Every structure is written in C-alpha cells, then in structure tokens.
Computed example of a mutant assay.
Amino acid sequence: MVEPSDARTPRWVKVFAIAGVAVVVLVVVLLLTGHGPGRHLRHGGSRPVPSAPGGPAW
C-alpha cells in the first residue's frame, strides 16, 4: 500500500497548474474588460484604401 506522504504531486506539476490558471484568469479578465482580439478587427468590413500611390497595398 502507498503511504500518503509518498503520493505527493510533483512540484513541477503544481507550478504548471498555477501558471495555467493564471493565464486563463488573465485572458478572461482581458476579454471582459474589452482588451480582447476583437478590438483589433475592423468593424466596417471593408478594406482601407491607400492614401497615396506606392503606399502599403492592403
């Protein structure tokens, strides 16, 4: 039979679990406060027109 003291979770597992939870919480907070990827999308749906010849070709 395995002793309870021998069945501990390794430290690296705990570190990765805490880091993963922190990342998930950060993403949720950013999405709820309006700092998600949607703010970088164009809401008009049209592509911008270059203002001068030789400008960036969108």
Rank of each mutant, 00 (worst) to 15 (best):
M1C: 09
M1S: 11
M1H: 08
V2G: 02
V2K: 10
E3I: 07
E3N: 15
P4S: 04
S5L: 13
A7Q: 08
R8I: 09
T9K: 07
T9W: 01
T9N: 04
P10R: 04
P10T: 02
R11E: 14
R11S: 11
V13W: 05
V13H: 06
K14F: 05
K14L: 11
K14W: 10
V15K: 09
V15H: 06
F16V: 14
F16Y: 12
A17I: 04
A17D: 09
I18V: 14
I18W: 09
I18Q: 10
A19N: 05
A19D: 03
G20A: 02
V21Q: 07
A22K: 02
A22W: 01
A22Q: 03
A22S: 15
V23E: 04
V23G: 04
V23M: 14
V24Q: 03
V24N: 02
V24H: 01
L26H: 08
V27A: 11
V28C: 08
V28G: 03
V29H: 01
L30F: 15
L31S: 10
L32T: 14
L32H: 07
T33S: 12
G34W: 03
H35A: 12
H35I: 08
G36M: 05
G36C: 07
G36D: 11
G36R: 06
G36L: 06
P37F: 15
P37H: 13
P37Q: 12
P37T: 14
G38K: 12
G38P: 00
G38C: 11
R39F: 08
H40D: 14
H43V: 13
G44T: 15
G45Y: 03
G45M: 05
S46N: 13
S46T: 13
S46K: 06
S46E: 09
R47W: 08
P48S: 01
P48F: 01
P48G: 00
P48L: 00
P48I: 00
V49L: 07
P50W: 00
S51G: 15
A52F: 14
A52K: 14
P53N: 05
P53Y: 02
P53Q: 06
G54K: 02
G55Y: 00
G55C: 03
G55R: 01
G55D: 10
P56C: 04
P56V: 06
A57W: 03
A57H: 08
A57D: 12
W58F: 12
W58Y: 12
W58R: 01
